[in-house]
């Protein structure tokens, strides 16, 4: 990826597509617009696209079906745009292989942040087994990636926030590896830490409360002297 990243924006609503395309262009992206899944497909063949922004609800072929097509043909990142915030849509979307989703109306700034995170991850090649809903198991816990849910050994759902999810996901993908606060911020939020940034430490302590037997003496998420955290347990996938 060099120069301006090339985004393909597929949405049948002109009233959203046009201003969003202009906004993204101002943010330094090159944007190709398509008003339907069909024209999106041909644009995919015609240009070297770096990331697809895809509306789910469209007349004709819908966004989910196009996501499946894209995933079947490669690793191109997909962010779904949806008007429905219902859980099932999200899960289906992520199961189809979408990398992320935003609910309309969304903040364009947040969308840009997510686009940058995903592009950076794609560039680093950390995109993990795209499309498959990989589950991670560690110390009796199960992290389901499609649902973004954490389950205890007896099958009890232990609700976590999306920030906590991204944090534990980053940790289980790199068991044993020491991750600095900056790395974790970058991996989970796509931004750099400020001088007094406590966001990661807060989320770690919240996670510990939920998964450690004794949060004061953590055995799963260990603090490493010199600034960082490490998942001190084996992780199995599948």
């Amino acid at each position: 990826m060099s120069g301006r990243p090339h985004l393909l924006l597929i949405d049948d609503e002109t009233s959203i597509r046009d201003p969003l395309a202009r906004y993204l262009e101002r943010q330094g992206f090159r944007v190709t617009e398509a008003e339907s899944a069909a024209s999106g497909r041909s644009a995919l063949g015609a240009y070297g696209i770096d990331l697809v922004l895809l509306d789910i609800m469209m007349p004709g072929e819908d966004g989910l079906s196009l996501t499946r097509h894209i995933r079947a043909h490669g690793e191109m990142p997909v962010i779904l745009l949806t008007a429905r915030s219902e859980e099932t849509d999200r899960i289906v979307g992520l199961e189809m292989g979408a990398d992320d989703y935003v609910v309309k109306p969304f903040s364009p700034r947040e969308l840009v942040a997510r686009i940058k995170t995903i592009l950076r991850r794609a560039a680093q090649g950390v995109r993990v087994e795209s499309g498959d809903s990989t589950d991670y198991r560690f110390a009796g816990w199960t992290l389901k990636t499609a649902e973004q849910e954490l389950y205890a050994a007896d099958g009890t759902l232990v609700p976590i926030s999306s920030g906590e999810y991204r944090l534990i996901e980053a940790l289980v993908q790199r068991p044993g590896q020491v991750l600095s606060r900056d790395q974790l911020l970058d991996l989970t939020q796509g931004r750099e830490a400020g001088p007094f940034d406590r966001a990661i430490d807060n989320q770690i302590s919240r996670l510990r409360k939920k998964i450690e037997v004794d949060p004061k003496n953590p055995v799963l998420i260990k603090t490493v002297w010199g600034g960082g955290y490490r998942l001190a347990t084996e992780v199995r996938t599948g």
Binding site: P19, L20, A83, P108
Partner: peptide
């Protein structure tokens, strides 16, 4: 209600994008 929700959210989404200018 679903249609109302969707139909209202679309112009709201457009507005949300436009106010960035």
């Amino acid at each position: 209600l679903g249609a109302i929700g969707h139909d209202l959210k679309t112009p709201l989404a457009a507005l949300r994008v436009r106010i960035e200018s």
